[in-house]
């Protein structure tokens, strides 16, 4: 009960942070500014296109949720230290593990609330516009996107114990973008090189987060069939395991951090 109250307080703090800072308002306005004119566009005077709107909507959802999740998570610890709010926080009868877990869970819940809001709007608009909506693929895409957010926030949390928030965002951003673009090419690249580069590429392939496994936008946009649920759950479990690994190391480091 005691720990639950502590976690609940820490989660509420992150939600206040997100909503009071108006990040959500900014991204919603940006999305409206981009999407509304596009929805009225008739390229070459021909109406009826919808997939490009879906594509851009989902791209914005990915971009905004990633930016919100990463910036919020990367700032948790450095901001607490910079603003010295860490002192009264650590002076309270909550263990550092609970504090880190609560702050991480708060950012995660805040980011996921944005994600769910945008996915809800996407589903609502699509079901209103079209008789057919691929619900199964949609749920899988949502589940994998949630997995992705869990993974990248844990990664950013771990990074925040090594770097300041800007450096953390850069390093995590490069790692995530690199893995999305080249994650599946690493074994091919490794085969083309000799030691030690081959070994480094193999280690990277096995240790770096496989962010390329979470994107089902193309399936959703082009109405492809759903993937096997087993594969979907495997990816979800992979994200959970990876996030738990990152969180475990982050907790270990945070418990030893001098403030």
């Amino acid at each position: 009960m005691h720990t639950l109250r502590q976690l609940s307080a820490l989660i509420r703090l992150s939600l206040y942070d997100l909503y009071r800072r108006k990040d959500l308002v900014i991204v919603t306005i940006l999305a409206v500014v981009v999407l509304v004119p596009m929805s009225f566009a008739t390229p070459f005077g021909i109406k009826g296109a919808s997939r490009y709107l879906n594509e851009i909507s989902l791209l914005l959802v990915w971009l905004f949720v990633l930016v919100i999740a990463m910036t919020r998570t990367a700032r948790i610890i450095p901001t607490e230290i910079d603003s010295r709010t860490i002192y009264p926080l650590l002076a309270k009868p909550a263990s550092r593990t609970v504090i880190l877990l609560g702050r991480y869970a708060g950012v995660l819940i805040a980011s996921l609330s944005v994600l769910l809001l945008f996915y809800g709007l996407y589903a609502l608009i699509n079901t209103m516009k079209s008789a057919f909506f691929p619900w199964e693929v949609f749920i899988q895409a949502l589940l994998l996107h949630i997995s992705f957010v869990i993974l990248v926030t844990a990664l950013a949390l771990l990074g925040s114990l090594f770097f300041n928030s800007d450096a953390n965002l850069s390093v995590s951003g490069i790692l995530i973008a690199g893995m999305i673009l080249y994650g599946q090419q690493l074994p091919v690249l490794a085969a083309e090189h000799s030691l030690p580069i081959r070994a480094i590429l193999h280690i990277l392939y096995w240790l770096a987060p496989h962010c390329e496994l979470f994107d089902m936008r193309t399936r959703l946009i082009h109405h492809w069939p759903a993937i096997p649920w087993l594969a979907c759950f495997c990816i979800f479990l992979y994200a959970l395991a990876y996030a738990a690994f990152c969180f475990g190391i982050a907790t270990w480091l945070f418990n030893r951090k001098k403030v």
């Binding site: 994650g183 074994p187 496989h210 496994l213 089902m216 993937i227 594969a231 990816i235 992979y238």
Partner: peptide, 13 residues
């Protein structure tokens, strides 16, 4: 042997 590649293949059509 290579679960990442296998899962990625599942995602591709």
């Amino acid at each position: 042997r290579d679960p990442w590649s296998y899962l990625n293949a599942q995602l591709q059509t």
